[in-house]
Structures are given as structure tokens and as C-alpha cells.
Simulated scan of single mutants.
Amino acid sequence: MLLGSFALIVCLFGFNNHQAPFEPYQQQIPNTDLKFSMMPIPAGTFVMGASVNEIGFQEDESPQREIHIDAFWMGAHEVTWDLFELFLDKNLEIGISTKPLTHQVDGLTRPSTPYLDMTFGMGKGSKPAVGMTQYGAIQFCRWLYLKTGVFYRLPTEAEWEYAARAGSSDSYFFGSDSDLMSEYAIYSHNSHKVTSTVGSKSPNPWGLYDILGNVMEWTGDFYANYVDDESQNKNPKVVSDQLYPQVLRGGHYESEVEDLRVARRFGSDPVWKQLDPQIPKSRWWFPEAPFVGMRVVRPLNTPSESEIQAYFDRIPPADF
């Protein structure tokens, strides 16, 4: 059964005549010493979802179907606090910038100051930023666009699974032997119940660190049951006019190995906002979700300016 009304659409992006070389690169945040790494994810076709015979299989991981994905770049690491805090705190951004902020960046709407410690005592710096809503994650991408002139966004659910698999059809990108997990992931067995500095474990074959474990990662999709429809098997994306649930992937620092399977799906939950005193609830923060984070992607073919603004301008329903 589908959860709520939704529309299944195919993402069709415009073309950028000044296409960058399709290779790994580092994105500098202008007028600062901060940068982050992006890895090229080649176009290809894969089987999305899990077999009913896979250990830990969940009903929402089927039916399996063949999906084609266009090329894109994906962040080598989850977005860290040292990056996210520049977006969160304009005074901090002004303080470390070597030049004044542009008027677009200066006038950007930013998250309300959280009344709780949104690090949950786990630390900032090169640890993954946590607790942001999907809307907050998208607005961070808007800030990146205004700072760099490069369009970054959340991955679709299909893009995320394709990149995480890195060519594997097994439970994990390294095969089906969960005993190998400690080499690649921060999870219940080795986390001591806190996140870790990004990149502290080995990456998957496409150079993505912590794609399993550490923090769950936002996708841009609404959570709904899979539809085995060949007309929707190229760059699929699910959107909805409802707020919950949206899809997260990858498991987190307290997940068991079965929840780190590449096909495992999670939906956002309004319970994560139950401590928020605001009415309506904040669009920016989940006061009870220290396990939620994000990773950015950049499509190889840049959308038109109108498509970019439409992506950033979509306002979620009020959360009561």
C-alpha cells in the first residue's frame, strides 16, 4: 500500500554547455579555507531493491527492478559541522571569510537557532552534521549554490542506492559477509554510541566514505512502495505534497548490520520533533534525531536556472 498521495516523476535536467571534466575534484568554499571532495559516479544500470532471499529482507525493498541512472558526482564524505555551521551561523561565516558576503548570501534565510545542543554532545569539526530536516538539507544546498555557483542537491533514492552499491548486487558493496563491516562502517559494534570523524573507515569502490553507518543520509524522495513500471525506470524520483515520510538511507552509528544493507530503506518520523516547542514545528531541526545527516550530489548535466530555483523554493507543508 502506498503511503499518502504522491507523484512518480522522472528527473529531466537541462544541459550545461560549459560542462566540467568528469573526474574527482575538490570544491572550495570561496573566501575560506574550507573545501569538500566530490567523486564521479558513472552512468549505468543496476537492479534496485533486495531479493526476498536476502538476510534481513524487508517488504518495502521489493519488487526489484532495473533502473538506469545518469552520471553525477557525489560527496566523498557526509557533510560535516565545519561546513554546515557556516550556513547555520552567518556571524561565523562573516568572521572567517576573507571578503564580505555577497548580498544574495547575506540575505539568505537560515535555520532558526536551535535551543538544544544539536551536536548531542558528539562534537563538531569534521564529524557529520546531524539533526537537520530534509528542508534544512535542501537549503544548505541553496547556500552552497549561492557561495560557489555550482548546483548541489540531495541524491534521489535511486542515485543513493546505485552509488552505494558501486556495482555490487550483494547485501553490502563489499559482498554479503557482514563480518567485514568494521572495515567500512561506524555502527553499533564499534561506535561507542557516537558518530565518528568522516573518512575514518575504508571507502566503497567508488570512493564514498561512510556510505554505510555513521549517520543516515537524506534523499530527495518521498517514501512509497516501489512500482515495477518500465516507463519510470530512468532516473526515478518520488515526490509528494505530504511531509511524512521522506526517505533516508545508509543506517547510522547505532544500527545493526542488517540495517546497513544497501537496499535498506528508512522513513522520516514526526516523533523526531516531539520535543520542539514551536507551533507549527520547525522546518529546520529534528530535536530527537542525532542519527540524521546528509551528503550532496551534483548532476553531470546542470539543470536550467528555473529548475534550480524550483528545487530550492519548494516549501514543505506546515508541521503541527
Results as ranks from 00 to 15, higher is better:
Gly56Ile: 07
Ser171Thr: 02
Ala263Gly: 09
Ser196Cys: 15
Phe291Trp: 05
Thr302Cys: 10
Ala50Met: 05
Pro40Phe: 12
Met1Asn: 00
Met1Asp: 00
Asn17Met: 13
Phe174Tyr: 07
Asp179His: 04
Gln274Val: 02
Gln242Trp: 13
Trp218Gln: 10
Asp179Leu: 06
His18Arg: 13
Gly251Trp: 00
Pro111Ala: 11
Gly4Tyr: 15
Thr32Leu: 05
Phe266His: 02
Pro280Met: 02
Pro40Leu: 10
Asp259Cys: 06
Phe15Ile: 14
Gly199Arg: 10
Phe222Tyr: 10
Ala76Asn: 03
Asn190Glu: 09
Tyr135Leu: 08
His192Ser: 14
Val292Arg: 01
Glu85Phe: 02
Ser178Arg: 10
Arg165Tyr: 01
Glu61Leu: 04
Tyr135Asp: 01
Asp60Asn: 11
Val239Gln: 10
Glu183Asp: 12
Lys193Ser: 09
Glu256Pro: 09
Asp170His: 11
Ser268Ala: 08
Leu8Phe: 12
Gly125Thr: 12
Ile69Arg: 13
Met74Thr: 07
Lys99Gln: 06
Phe13Asp: 15
Val271Pro: 02
Asn214Met: 15
Ser62Asp: 12
Pro128Glu: 08
Ser168Asn: 05
Ala71Thr: 08
Ile9Pro: 00
Pro63Leu: 08
Gly49Asn: 05
Tyr172Asp: 04
Ile41Val: 05
Ser178Tyr: 05
Glu54Cys: 09
Asp82Leu: 07
Gln139Met: 08
Glu183Arg: 13
Pro40Arg: 09
Glu78Tyr: 04
Phe320Val: 14
Gly251Ala: 11
Phe174Lys: 00
Gly267Arg: 11
Gln134Trp: 09
Thr156His: 11
His189Ser: 13
Glu254Pro: 12
Leu101Asn: 06
Glu159Ser: 09
Thr98Tyr: 09
Asp241Tyr: 06
Tyr135Gln: 02
Phe173Arg: 00
Leu12Cys: 11
Thr45Phe: 13
Ile96Tyr: 01
Pro24Thr: 15
Met216Asn: 06
Thr133Glu: 02
Glu217Ser: 01
Ala164Cys: 07
Ile9Gln: 03
Ile67Met: 03
Val194Ile: 15
Gly125Ile: 14
